[in-house]
């Protein structure tokens, strides 16, 4: 039971890192990204492949996942942040689909549909690896919180909010809106990469279906549930959306109805959060 709790708390921390980083992209920069889940997947694959195939140490693997995902995120942003909101959302959605197809079919690099197994965890001496992962996830989530809150309150964060609200105004005052957005997306992708590396450690095994669109939608729902303007809210959203399905595991009447019931409640939650998001947007315009 205690190991199970460790796992759930670590998973909540991992998704809190993912949702805090998407909070910068969506809540500050106003970029409605449907690629955050697959960026997390890219981080997971960089970590998983480097540590299992290339003999890289877990610590170096984490750094590589953060940097590599940030670079790929920057490349995606560079060709898409000038688009309007709907076009941007569709472009990131296409990126999500495309990366999953590549992960599935470029088997010589990614091991294709077999996935990557026996992914190692960070370890120090003979400490309990599950406890180690929990502590690492807690520490990194706390650091991510401090960093992203400082970013949100900084001049960079204020400019991002202004650029989301009125990009022409910011440009007319000298603000490089394109480069501001690319930087925000790259930083957000770095957070997704970190979450991905931890996710790969936690799961021990990764395969392409894990990173299909539902994961992006899940992280998006966490951010929207917590309120897009608050870094703390993103943490709350992650805790709730990771915690509720786990709680429902025990609330179900019998083992047969547990799975479908969780899916139904989960689906309803996502519909409600998206509805709230769209509704608040139209009422503000």
């Amino acid at each position: 039971m205690i190991v199970y709790l460790y796992e759930v708390v670590a998973l909540a921390c991992i998704f809190a890192i993912a949702s805090m980083s998407l909070n910068l992209v969506l809540g500050r920069a106003g970029l409605f990204s449907l690629a955050h889940g697959v960026l997390l997947g890219i981080g997971a694959y960089i970590y998983g492949l480097l540590t299992t195939q290339a003999g890289v140490s877990p610590a170096v693997g984490v750094v590589a996942a953060v940097v590599g995902t940030a670079v790929l995120g920057a490349a995606l942003a560079a060709v898409s942040v000038h688009l309007d909101e709907e076009q941007f959302a569709v472009t990131t959605l296409a990126f999500n689909l495309l990366v999953v197809i590549v992960l599935t079919n470029w088997a010589s690099l990614t091991r294709g549909a077999y996935g990557v197994a026996q992914i190692p965890r960070l370890s120090i001496g003979d400490a309990d690896p599950q406890l180690m992962l929990l502590l690492a996830a807690l520490l990194l989530a706390a650091l991510t919180f401090v960093a992203f809150r400082a970013l949100a309150k900084s001049g960079f964060g204020q400019l991002l909010v202004a650029s989301a609200s009125d990009p022409d105004m910011v440009r007319a005052l000298g603000g490089p809106v394109w480069s501001l957005r690319v930087r925000a997306f790259a930083i957000g992708s770095a957070g997704a990469g970190l979450a991905g590396a931890l996710f790969a450690m936690q799961a021990g095994y990764i395969a392409p279906p894990l990173f299909e669109l539902h994961l992006s939608v899940l992280i998006l729902a966490m951010v929207i549930l917590g309120g897009t303007r608050s870094v703390g809210g993103a943490v709350l959203g992650a805790v709730v959306l990771i915690g509720i399905p786990e709680a429902l595991r025990f609330a179900a009447f019998n083992a047969v109805s547990a799975g479908p019931l969780r899916q139904i409640v989960f689906g309803l939650l996502i519909i409600v959060t998206i509805y709230v998001r769209l509704h608040s947007k139209t009422s503000r315009a």
Binding site: G155, Q158, L159, A162, V170, L173, G174, G175
Partner: peptide
């Protein structure tokens, strides 16, 4: 402050 921030 956006005036000052925007021009770097």
């Amino acid at each position: 402050a956006i005036g000052a921030l925007a021009r770097g």
